[in-house]
Design a binder for these strands. Structure first.
Lengths: 135, 135
DNA sequence: CAAACTGTAACAAATTTAATTACAATATAA
DNA sequence: TTATATTGTAATTAAATTTGTTACAGTTTG
C-alpha cells in the first residue's frame, strides 16, 4: 500500500482551496489523518520539482509555487516517483536461455510505454480541474 | 518489488516459442531464476482467466489455451491483478474536513481512469507481437 | 530569547512479496 | 501395480518497502 500520490494530491487540493495562506504540515496531516513527517517528506519532492514553496520558522508552512491551472497530475505523478505500474522484477533471468537473455530489454521498453500512457492521461488533468470537482 | 507481471509474461513467451510442448514449472523457473512455486502461483491466475491450460501428473505441464494472437498484454495485466498504478492510500481522511470528506471518491475515479488508460495501451499488444520482437 | 515552524535522520511497526518446505492429488510409464 | 514426475496448495520464513514515531538542528517571528 503506497499512498504517496494521494497524499501529494490531497495537500495540493488544500493549498488550492486556500490560496495565499501558508498551511502547516500539522494542519494538513490532520485533514488526512496521517503523520506530519510523512507530509513533509512528500512536500520535499513537490518542492524539488517546483510545484510548491515552503517557508521555515514561526508562521512557516507551504503554498503553491504555480497557478493551479499550470500544475497537472502528471507533474505530481512524476514528482512522487511511484514504483512502475507493471511492477519491477528483481530476478536475473538465465542468460543461457534465449528468452531469458533478451526479455529484460523488451519488458523495460514495455514499462516505458505504459508509464508514458499514464503520464499522457494525467497530463490532461490539472489540479485546478481536480479541485473543481469538489462541491 | 513486484515481478508478477514479468513472470507471467515470461512464461507466456516461453509457451509461445515452444508450441505444442508442455513446459513444467521447474523448467520455466530455471529460465527466469525464480522459485517454481511462484511460477505455479502465477499460472493459477492465468488458468483461471483462461489464458493457459495445465495438465497434472507425470509428463504434466503448461500450455497456451488460446492462439498467441488472441492473448493481449491487457489480459495478462488483468489476470495478475497488480496493485493500482497510482497506489492505494490506507489512511481515512478526516470527514470533518470538506476536502477530506470528498477526496476519496475523486481519487477513486481518477485511479479508474488511469487503470483504463493502462489497459487500453496494453490491449494493443498481443503475446504474439511481444514474442516477435525477439531475435 | 521563547515559540512554532520546516528539514532530516534514525529507528520501530506494519504490510507486502518472494523463497522455501512440505505434502496431497494426479497421471504416466516401467 | 508401483515408482516417478508433475501440478496444486498451504504454511512458514526471509526480505523489502512503506508508514509511524521520536528526536533534534536550523529558521523565522514576535
Amino acid at each position: 500500500m503506497n499512498g504517496q500520490f494521494q497524499i501529494a494530491t490531497h495537500v495540493l487540493t488544500l493549498l488550492c482551496k486556500q490560496p495565499g495562506e501558508l498551511l502547516s504540515s500539522e494542519y494538513v496531516a490532520g485533514s488526512m489523518n496521517v503523520n506530519p513527517v510523512l507530509v513533509r517528506k512528500e512536500m520535499r519532492k513537490l518542492r524539488v520539482c517546483g510545484l510548491i514553496e515552503s517557508k521555515e520558522g514561526k508562521t512557516g508552512g507551504y503554498s503553491l509555487a504555480l497557478p493551479p491551472q499550470k500544475i497537472t497530475l502528471a507533474d505530481v505523478y512524476k514528482a512522487v516517483k511511484l514504483p512502475p505500474a507493471l511492477g519491477q522484477a528483481k530476478n536475473k533471468p538465465n542468460p543461457a536461455c534465449p528468452v531469458g537473455k533478451q526479455i529484460g530489454a523488451h519488458l523495460d521498453h514495455l514499462a516505458d510505454d505504459v508509464e508514458a500512457a499514464i503520464i499522457k492521461k494525467l497530463s490532461t488533468i490539472t489540479i485546478f480541474d481536480f479541485v473543481n470537482q469538489f462541491d
